[in-house]
Design a protein around this nucleic acid. Structure first.
Lengths: 337, 337
DNA sequence: AAGGATTGTTAAACCGGTTTAACGATCTGC
DNA sequence: GCAGATCGTTAAACCGGTTTAACAATCCTT
């Protein structure tokens, strides 16, 4: 590859002049600009991104840290979230560097990513990386609230308590009392938040929360999300009474629907079903169409990216953003007679 | 941030020694190593990735170019393909730099990505980028065959002609003659290849290809894939006879199923359905479970990454890989009486 | 005990850009 | 016609690492 020196030599000007032609940070006369560009074209020269990054101390790259998925598949939430991040970053001239690696703790092997800032999905409890990025002065935005809560750290999250409250309120409001809640994995903050929201709904309706049945997804027990819904319904049905199901995702709802068909339980006539949804297109292709709470993962990703970009450019802006969910009533729920 | 010089000064050694301690490319005595590491810890020093990349002329980053999705959503194929790329790259110590930007043609603004190689999804016809990467001597692997075909360029692809042939052979073999093929967008090579495979199946069975009805997806006409299947069935049914449908993706099949339910057409009793599938978990949650051709997008991504990694390390290996698809018979097809 | 091999360390050059400070040339005003 | 401002260009320093060549210190040989 040709370097800036080659171009300078061929065009008969100095390095600095060539640099200015390409970066446009300093005015260069028409004549010289033309000569430089021609030389560059002749040599097939393009500025070296790495060298430039070193000099300006910016890479124009945002890092996106995703939890390691053992099976390689990304959930709909992750996919959509990522889509939002990529779109927003791209629009603002940033590239996205993906990585699913756990941070290495051997300091002799750890090397800082070539990024100007980081978006981190689903931080763990007391995640040590949060502090580390702080030390390194690398802007950080979380997707999913930090645990423990920290006012100083930037994050975006669904209002998960509100999600639980909203769907609970809806189902209890149309007469259901016993609800099977197929919740997310118990080590996730979302699971905790949604459950506490549901509990609050029960309280508001004066019904003991004990009438709800809460299950948690487990990687060990369930092959995939659909299988979770399928197995959970088969196992629970008949053992304990319930007239409605809240499914953690569309996929879980799909499994529930299939199990219900096999058991001969009509949805929504004998069983109501609500899905916490990441994928509105899927929810509309089932029979009956799914009543859902739309989580808008894409918006979450886009918001995270916006906040990060502001931080990277030292623009003062919001630090946190709670995205409200929206209940969309379709066909899968019915008032309890 | 502390630099290597700071550490050298504090540890009382030279730059080069500190470098060797971290890169382990040269043996350093126990004593000095300890002193350097302690100094580094005290200063909170981590090697600067950009500076290192400049010096060693490698970034350990693979670029992944995806076509720009207008609506921000990625298809299941794209998602899975990406998952395969990420997993394989991560396993081999490479990060993945995503980008959906069209390459800028203004040479004063174009800057080479900080990548050691590139994986490009769905190259266009006569894609100028292929040649450009060649000029820059940046290793390139395509996902989806180049058009026109070029023996020199690396790529991985499904055996799409075989896909069309296989599914056609199956359906014609169980007595169907008129098949509605809901094919991909007509400007994609996959659409062309699959159709020619299907035509070959017709020929093999001595049935004029004219009995098949081939439709193409169109971004303008169809909101999303499921909607394509739904609308296509409603529009075509009754106008022209057919006893089987080949759906381009699981989502399309979902739409077909819904339309069939609304029209009161029993699947598979009165209509057989095969999906070209990217998402095996989805195909098993419908009623009836979908008979599919599994496209294994993830494998495709992983293979592309393998080939790229070999190229980036100057290891001679295969240049091209055609992945065969597998017909999985479930419940959505029935012999024509 | 001299000579050669081995090991560990260093100073300096280098990777390919950006940026600062200085400078010469042209343009203004008086 | 000269002082001062403006404009375009350049040489040199810099970003933070790696690597080469030279060298000093230690370890065998014989």
């Amino acid at each position: 590859m040709a370097t800036i020196d080659d171009v300078a030599k061929l065009a008969g000007v100095s390095k600095g002049t060539v640099s200015s032609v390409f970066s446009k940070k300093r005015p260069i006369s028409q004549l010289v600009t033309a000569r430089v560009l021609e030389a560059a074209k002749e040599l097939g020269y393009f500025p070296n991104h790495v060298a430039r990054s070193l000099a300006i101390k910016k890479t124009l790259i945002a890092g996106l840290k995703m939890p390691i998925s053992t099976d390689g598949g990304m959930s709909a939430f992750e996919t959509q979230m990522m889509g939002g991040v990529i779109q927003t970053c791209t629009k603002h001239g940033y590239r996205v560097l993906l990585d699913t690696l756990p941070e290495h703790d051997d300091p002799t092997q750890f090397s800082i990513d070539p990024v100007d800032g980081v978006i981190m999905l689903n931080p763990r409890q007391n995640d040590p990386r949060i502090e580390r990025y702080g030390q390194m002065a690398i802007p950080l935005v979380l997707v999913g609230r930090p645990d423990p809560m920290d006012e100083a750290v930037c994050f975006v999250d669904n209002n998960n308590k509100e999600v639980g409250l909203q769907v609970g309120d809806y189902l209890l409001g149309i007469g259901h009392r016993s609800i099977l809640f197929l919740n997310a994995s118990s080590d996730m903050t979302v699971a905790f938040d949604r459950q506490s929201g549901l509990a609050q709904a029960y309280e508001r309706h004066g019904i003991p929360f004990g009438e709800a049945i809460v299950l948690n997804f487990s990687r060990k027990k369930h092959k995939n999300m659909a299988n979770y819904g399928y197995a959970a319904l088969l196992e629970t049905y008949g053992k304990r009474p319930f007239s409605a199901v809240i499914a953690d995702t569309d996929r879980v709802a799909l499994g529930v629907l299939r199990a219900a068909r096999e058991l001969g339980i009509a949805v929504p006539d004998r069983l109501s079903l609500v899905a916490l949804s990441n994928d509105a297109t899927l929810a509309q292709e089932t029979t009956p169409k799914l009543t859902t709470v739309e989580l808008s993962a894409e918006l979450l990703g886009a918001e995270a990216a916006h906040i990060l970009i502001d931080k990277m450019n030292n623009i003062e802006g919001v630090h946190q953003r709670i995205v409200d969910a929206k209940l969309v009533i379709r066909e899968s729920c019915k008032p309890l007679a």
